[in-house]
Amino acid sequence: MLPGEIFTKLKNDFGDAIIELNESPNSDPWILVGADQLFDIFHTLRDADEFQFDYLMSLSGTDLGENLGVVYHLYSMTHRHKLVVKVEVPKGNPVVPTVERLWRTADWHEREAYDLIGVRFEGHQNLIRILLPYDWEGHPLQKDYVTPDSYHGMKIS
């Protein structure tokens, strides 16, 4: 199933929560959705017979300047089709519902996105840092991140 068809079907079900379908050149087409109904949208995408996206390939956080984004790359083992879903949240309050209960692989991906980008996943059972030390300050992949001078008395630069 092509992203365009999926977009139309989702639009019928969820209305305004599905914001736009982007088919710009040099890109995989993606669907931008709102953060409010995210869990329900993904639940439909995973369980509806026509979609069956049972394989979450990747979950990446991105820093978009004013907003923080989360990109979901989905794949269906049965239908062999792909989908890219994006959600954007303001940097001041970056809260996205977790999808960890749908795809258990999202657990570590979300912890990584929280660790490096700073997106907070609401409802995640164990949202702590995964790569950096637990007492590290800041989220290094944000564009305005300034590397601290030292960590526990060891000079960084």
């Binding site: 290094p140 060891m154 000079k155």
Partner: peptide, 11 residues
């Protein structure tokens, strides 16, 4: 490398 110690001889 914000998380890399620049030489083990520092410790």
């Amino acid at each position: 490398g914000y998380h890399v110690l620049k030489g083990v001889d520092r410790i």
